[in-house]
């Protein structure tokens, strides 16, 4: 299979999944239908589990074999979170966190 075709399939898969989540409520809950309590409940709690999963997913290539392979990512992750707790400014947190990561990446062997 050619690489282009693989990319197209991957994009289509993501479009399908995304649009499924966007259109499903409108298809399932037509007038007068009540939403099951489990659905409302998990909708309230799932996003937080999901973001935690994505953070670990991003850090999956961190290796503890040598400092250069984990210090930049771990330090920048902690600093990003602390900056955001303190200043509540997404732009600042992401720019400073990414900048710090890029600097540490070049400084630590």
């Amino acid at each position: 299979m050619s690489l282009t075709l693989k990319w197209i399939i991957q994009i289509l898969v993501c479009i399908l999944a995304t649009q499924l989540t966007r259109f499903l409520p409108f298809l399932v809950f037509r007038e007068g239908k009540t939403v099951p309590p489990f659905v409302t409940w998990i909708g309230h709690h799932l996003p937080r589990a999901c973001m935690a999963m994505l953070v670990i997913y991003c850090l999956k290539d961190v290796s503890f074999a040598q400092a250069g392979a984990w210090v930049p990512a771990i330090v920048a992750t902690v600093v990003t979170s602390l900056l955001h707790l303190k200043f509540k400014n997404m732009f600042l947190s992401i720019c400073a966190g990414t900048g710090l990561y890029m600097i540490l990446l070049r400084l630590i062997p």
């Binding site: 850090l59 990003t80 979170s81």
Partner: peptide, 9 residues
């Protein structure tokens, strides 16, 4: 990563 960390925070 920073985006996900910010959202999680």
């Amino acid at each position: 990563t920073a985006l996900f960390v910010v959202i999680m925070t």
